[in-house]
Simulated assay, not measured.
Amino acid sequence: MKSQNFTLEHLAQVVQGQCLGRPDSIFTGLASLEQAESCDIAFVNGEKYVEQALQSKAGALIVTAELQSLFSSQLNFIIVQNPYLAFATLTHVFEKKHTQRGIEATAQIHPSAIISESAYIGHYTVIGENCVVGDHTIIKSHVTIDDQVEIGKSCFIDSHVMLTGEAKIGDRVRIHSNTVIGGEGFGFAPYQGKWHRIVQLGSVIIGNDVRIGSNCSVDRGALDDTILENGVIIDNLVQIAHNVKVGANTAIAAKCGVAGSTTIGKNCVLAGGVGVVGHINIVDNVTITGMSMVTNNISEAGKYSSGTGLLTNSQWKRTVVRLRQLADVPLTQLTKKIDHMQSQIESLESTLKLRK
Rank of each mutant, 00 (worst) to 15 (best):
F188C: 11
Y120M: 05
T91I: 02
C268H: 01
I127R: 02
A241K: 06
T226C: 01
V126S: 15
L8A: 03
Q342W: 11
V161T: 02
I264Y: 05
V246F: 10
N82F: 06
K140E: 14
I78E: 03
S32E: 01
N45D: 11
H123V: 15
L90T: 02
G185F: 01
I138C: 04
G152W: 04
N313M: 13
T263A: 10
D158C: 11
M291C: 13
Q325C: 09
I157M: 01
K266A: 09
V204Y: 00
E47Y: 12
I138A: 06
I338F: 13
E150D: 09
S69I: 13
L33V: 03
N285P: 07
A53W: 03
S217K: 07
V258S: 11
V246H: 07
D146E: 15
D235R: 11
N215Q: 08
A119P: 02
I181H: 05
S350Q: 15
V294I: 06
G102F: 06
A189V: 14
L311K: 14
V204D: 01
G193R: 08
I62L: 05
L352Y: 15
I127S: 00
Y191H: 14
N130H: 08
C39F: 14
T295A: 10
G134S: 06
E349C: 12
L163E: 07
N267G: 11
G247W: 03
R101N: 09
V321T: 12
I280C: 00
G165I: 09
H123Q: 15
A107Y: 04
D284L: 07
I298E: 06
D339S: 13
V180A: 10
N215D: 09
C19W: 06
E166W: 13
L323A: 11
R322A: 11
L85K: 14
L75G: 15
I62K: 02
P23A: 02
P190H: 08
L61R: 05
S69C: 11
E150H: 10
D284Y: 01
G257P: 07
L70I: 15
V50E: 09
I288S: 04
P111L: 12
T164L: 13
V321W: 10
F6R: 01
V238G: 04
I127H: 03
A53T: 07
V15E: 08
G128N: 05
V15D: 03
D235C: 12
H196R: 04
I103W: 05
L348A: 12
G46N: 06
